[in-house]
Amino acid sequence: MSLRDAPRLETIERWMQAVVMHPEGAAAGVAARPARRLLLQAAAKLENVVLPSKSLTSLERLNIYAYMYYARLLEILTNEYPTTRQVLGDKVFERACRRFIERNPSKHRTLNLLSEKFPSFLARSLPPGNRRSLAVDVARIERAMEDVFDAPRADPLAAAEFAAIAADEWHRVRLRVNPALVPLKLRFPANDYMNVARAGASPRMPRPRATFAIVYRRDFKVFRRDQAPGQFKLLTALARGKTLAQAVRSSVSGRGNADRLAATLGAWFHEWAAAGIFCGIERAGSGRRGR
């Protein structure tokens, strides 16, 4: 090849990327329009662009990279979504992953965010039905586990700090929620399903039932647990920045007598304190900010 005929570096890189990222492999990639538009000479005679070795053809050499591209990203999705895979079965899951990788190629230097759109992709691309809904629920939990794993650090509030909030302060106190927390409203009891599946069993397809779960990190370990509907509503109201009084009013007021409500709230806050769900107290108007 003469210097004048040699493709520019940028052209070679764009061509090779188009070829190795083609979902049907390097041969299809070389023949496809994006690669042909860049290097027509490769489609005519691949050896003009990639040399064969003694034991491999030019196409076989390109296929090493094409195979590794999908294999590497499939491995990551498989590791991140083991229970989603169990819900869908190996074949459907792998097909979905391949389509996802094809339509959402990585734009990040780290792999943490590769699958951030995978749950919504499943919701859009799988055939409608209960299995899709359960798979999407499970995928949202599994994605949340990745997100809280990497989330910023924050020291949790101790139970004593909650106890120090006087009742007459509720109208001006806001609780800062741990950044390593994701609340999830689900269409199935997906967290229960995951508990059984991750214990090594094959859970039955559950009936649809609205459930509420939180995924959070404590001491660098990721946890997930279900929440009662009122508990979830209160927590999400607090996470949106409502004062304690506003959050309680909007989520649990009018339920039973005052003693029972106080006992319920006490139990919820005790659970959240133990889980490290809150990491700071803000007192409006006082200029005081806890941590």
Partner: peptide, 25 residues
């Protein structure tokens, strides 16, 4: 090596053509 172009990342170590242009770049 290069790992991606046009804003994408292949998360692999791709070779460059060993040319004067590649070297200058």
């Amino acid at each position: 090596c290069w790992t991606g172009v046009a804003g994408l990342n292949g998360h692999d170590l791709y070779p460059v053509p060993y040319t004067e242009e590649g070297l200058r770049h």
